Computed example of a mutant assay.
Amino acid sequence: MQLKLDLQFFAGEKTEKATPKKREDSRKKGQVAKSQDINTAFLLLFCFLILFVFGSFMKDSLVSIYQHAFTEYIQWDVTESTVHQVFTESTIEVAKMLAPIMLIAIIAGLAANFTQIGFLFTTEPLKFDLKKLDPIKGAKKVFSARALVELVKSLLKITFIGVITFSIIWIYKDEMMMLSFKNIDSALAFFGRVTIIMGIAAAIALLFLAVFDYTYQRYDFEKNIKMSKQDIKDEHKNMEGDPLIKSKIKEKQRQMATRRMMSEVPTADVVITNPTHFAIAIKYDEETASAPYVVAKGVDHTAFRIKEIAKANDVITVENRPLARALYDAIEIGDVIPEEFYQAVAEILAYVYRMENKV
């Protein structure tokens, strides 16, 4: 009894790698190995690069908005139409200014996801599930190994980015102290340059950490989708079909094939028997085939049914034991008679035609 329980335990232990079907099912549910840090790193890196390229354009656009506001808008009367015009024009200018960043952010997000998991669109994670509101499962997640890993990862990110930004500020501290002696354009250019340097350096550091995070996410994903030996057996059974159901389907198919075969017996020219165990119904139609062909065949009970239907429809039955056995073993329903049986079958058909006064 104890041995049986031990075997059941080990059969249910998830020790096997996931099958391709399990992976595909998990993917359809949106369960994939993905690091959110890679998305964040890509987003930061691309956004700061676009700031480096379009920074001067954005500064000029912002200055233009302020100049226009304090030279023209400030002199307008406050009415519904002027407020609407100011809001519309300002929104358009801000949209033009932010459009490059928004566009590159979308591209970076798509590129980060596509790099990790390829193209995937599913609404499965958006479906409402009461299990997600289970407080016990929520508590288990808080005190799980994954939560500990996320905590360590967050501390590493804070430490890395903090050290990098502080180091960059420390490098430029002397120049920062001298900003009071520079004009506004020089000060803005300095802060913009330092901010972009810090952003790009932080994004590269985050991307470095994201590589380790992605490795962990793949490991954790592979562990979560592992299967037990029983799971694999059940999957194969589901893919192949339950044996009982398969046998019933095959039995149904055999019955349908038998009914179709029996419906062809009345059209046969002759039924060759052995006489009790085998029955072969043969038909010769020049428009259908160049030689006689089999429309039905059977043994024992099926052979008896063929002979009954033939008798009921006045189809002549001829006893030829060796020929009936040989034809049954050599050909299938719908096949033409092989050449080695031409002579024997032709003699039987000639006999049948004479009996029916066809020749």
Rank of each mutant, 00 (worst) to 15 (best):
Q2W: 12
L3D: 15
L5S: 11
L7S: 08
Q8F: 09
F9S: 11
F9T: 13
A11W: 06
E13H: 08
T15S: 09
T15C: 03
E16M: 14
E16I: 08
R23V: 13
D25C: 01
D25H: 01
S26T: 07
S35H: 10
Q36H: 02
T40K: 04
T40M: 08
A41K: 04
C47I: 12
L49A: 13
L49C: 14
F54D: 11
F57G: 15
M58Q: 08
Y66S: 14
Y73R: 00
Y73V: 14
I74G: 01
W76R: 03
T79L: 09
E80P: 00
S81D: 14
T91Q: 04
E93G: 02
L103I: 15
L103F: 15
L103P: 06
I104F: 15
I107L: 13
L110T: 01
L110H: 02
A112C: 08
F121G: 00
K127N: 01
F128K: 07
D129H: 05
L130Y: 13
K132V: 04
D134L: 08
P135A: 10
K140W: 08
K140Y: 08
K141C: 03
K141M: 14
F143S: 06
R146W: 11
V152A: 15
V152C: 12
S154G: 13
S154Y: 07
I158N: 05
F160T: 11
G162A: 12
G162K: 11
F166G: 00
I168A: 04
I168H: 02
Y172A: 02
M178K: 03
L179H: 06
K182W: 12
M198L: 05
A203I: 11
F208I: 14
L209K: 01
T215R: 00
T215N: 04
Y219G: 05
D220K: 12
F221I: 11
I225G: 07
K229V: 01
I232T: 08
I232F: 06
D242H: 10
I245P: 00
I249P: 04
Q253S: 02
Q253F: 09
T258C: 04
R259M: 15
P266Q: 11
P266R: 10
V271M: 02
F278S: 01
F278V: 12
A281P: 01
K283C: 09
K283L: 15
E286Y: 10
E287W: 06
A291P: 04
D300A: 12
D300K: 04
H301C: 04
T302G: 02
A303L: 06
I306P: 05
E308D: 12
I309R: 07
D314M: 03
V315W: 04
L323K: 01
A324M: 07
A326G: 06
D335E: 15
I337S: 04
E340W: 03
Y342N: 09
Y342K: 09
A344Y: 05
E347H: 07
L349C: 06
M355E: 03
V359Q: 12
